[in-house]
């Protein structure tokens, strides 16, 4: 079965409830991509003009350091969004995202969307509230992990 790009974008949780007109806009800035295990979806320090709607496979958000394996911060999978840096200046990736298995995703040209939000603030608001929802969920999870809940009570 061949699924069209339009269907894929429409079915992704990120676009659920979004106006058809906006979904079409996103679709206009999007294309399908595939990553082999080990490929980087984005590289820390480089300019961030894309974000990914993951469809299949898992990717890890990680940091590289000399003399040790990449430090994985969290793993994300189908249905999630990878990349927020395209939204906020200086539009630069903060972390690496690496495919852990074959990853299928829709790459959305954030720079193109950014331009469109300039003339259509309502689009900007719609995008931002969707990104913020995901961002908040991830921030909360990260804060919970900082608590080191599994550390024994005697350790503090």
């Amino acid at each position: 079965m061949i699924t069209s790009l339009a269907q894929i974008v429409r079915q992704h949780p990120f676009t659920v409830g979004l106006d058809d007109e906006y979904v079409a806009l996103i679709e206009g800035c999007a294309h399908n991509v595939a990553f082999a295990p080990g490929d980087l979806l984005c590289r820390e320090g480089e300019s961030a003009d894309t974000f990914y709607l993951l469809r299949r496979g898992h990717a890890s958000i990680q940091v590289h350091a000399p003399g040790r394996a990449p430090i994985v911060i969290e793993t994300v999978g189908p249905g999630s969004v990878v990349g927020w840096s395209w939204l906020v200046a200086p539009y630069r990736w903060t972390f690496d995202a690496q495919a852990k298995e074959p990853v299928g995703a829709v790459a959305v040209d954030g720079a193109c969307l950014r331009q469109k939000t300039l003339v259509d603030p309502a689009l900007g608001y719609a995008l931002l509230s969707r990104v913020t929802a995901e961002l908040l969920a991830r921030l909360q999870a990260t804060r919970m992990r900082l608590l080191d809940l599994y550390g024994g009570p005697g350790e503090h």
């Binding site: 399908n32 595939a34 990553f35 490929d39 980087l40």
Partner: peptide, 10 residues
């Protein structure tokens, strides 16, 4: 060359 590594367009 890393530009090319950024995923294969399908």
């Amino acid at each position: 060359s890393r530009v090319e590594l950024r995923g294969v367009t399908s």
